[in-house]
């Protein structure tokens, strides 16, 4: 034992001082040749220990974009299995809200706020609420281990999932916005702004959803946070900001979905103010970058314990 132990210690030391450092610096040596012939068992053991110092070559890492595309594609395919909650529930909910509010609001800014808020609510439901639940479940169920033992950048997993969840919202947002425009007799010519609203509000809300799911200590808390976030988007999104008390108005300003709602509401104006819409979308984009970075950090934290 002593021979083996000492040989192992030497090998480990050599690994730390020698080839191990080379591998660390990216200059990965090829696997060593056959162990030197040994006349005695002790010599053979020493040769074994020595042989272990030449680290085996490491397989390449998965590159960011191909890995992101693979995660995105895999996540997108989940719509086949989970299409009811992913594609329909949020849309029905938003359509219901618009029908209910039809008799309450008089048109003008209020109508635009209701329709835009209902459309962005679809994004909040799927990208914030369902993604928080998904990552919460994945973390609690050990599903993150699968990704954590693959040489894939953390950002690819988070962005791929967030992108897919944002994509799930596209049909629902379109249906809600068009149905709302017709129901409230709003001009639909500015609806092209959805091309920017969905990805940017989707990025901001999906980043927050992913971060909530990954940081929550229990999946139930992730679900609760997701639901609360969606409720906030619902309550603060469908009412025009000017009608809210100041503290609630401040809360509304802190919610990233608000800026998506504002941009889309401007799109429903007869003469849209695209400059302000661009500013709103800029805020969405900035929050998206920050929240996705937070989610990536949360993923790394959750993946290795």
């Amino acid at each position: 034992m002593s021979t083996v132990a000492s040989a192992q210690a030497q090998a480990a030391q050599a690994g730390r001082n020698g080839t191990g450092e080379r591998a660390q610096s990216g200059d990965e040596p090829k696997r060593g040749g056959p162990a030197a012939p040994a006349a005695t068992a002790d010599a053979a053991d020493a040769a074994t220990a020595a042989a272990t110092v030449a680290p085996a070559p490491l397989a390449p890492r998965a590159r960011l974009w191909p890995a992101l595309a693979a995660v995105y594609r895999a996540q997108l395919s989940r719509a086949r299995v989970a299409r009811i909650p992913l594609l329909f529930v949020a849309t029905f909910q938003s359509l219901g809200i618009m029908v209910l509010m039809r008799g309450v609001v008089d048109g003008g800014a209020e109508s635009r706020a209701v329709v835009a808020g209902s459309a962005v609510l679809v994004v909040a439901f799927v990208a914030l609420n369902l993604l928080a639940q998904y990552f919460g479940r994945l973390r609690a169920g050990g599903g993150l281990d699968h990704y954590a033992t693959l040489p894939v950048p953390a950002a690819a997993v988070v962005l791929g999932a967030a992108g897919a969840y944002a994509s799930f919202t596209v049909p629902g947002v379109l249906v809600t916005a068009v149905a709302g425009g017709v129901l409230y007799q709003l001009p639909l010519s500015g609806l092209w702004v959805l091309v920017a609203v969905v990805p940017l509000a989707g990025a901001a809300l999906a980043g927050l959803g992913a971060a909530l799911g990954l940081l929550a200590p229990k999946p139930e808390i992730a679900t609760l946070c997701g639901q609360l976030g969606m409720s906030a988007a619902l309550l603060l999104g469908v009412l025009p900001g000017g009608h809210l008390p100041q503290p609630v108005g401040l809360l509304r300003d802190l919610l990233p979905s608000t800026y998506g709602v504002e941009a889309l509401a401007r799109g429903f104006q007869t003469r849209p103010d695209w400059g302000h819409a661009a500013l709103d979308l800029g805020v969405c984009a900035a929050v998206g970058v920050v929240s996705l970075a937070l989610a990536t950090w949360a993923y790394r934290r959750a993946a290795v314990r």
Binding site: P60, S77, G143, T149
Partner: peptide, 18 residues
Amino acid sequence: AARILAYLGQESAALDEL
């Protein structure tokens, strides 16, 4: 580790819906 070994855990949560 991810570049030198393949791991099969006990859970399949990440793959269940694929």
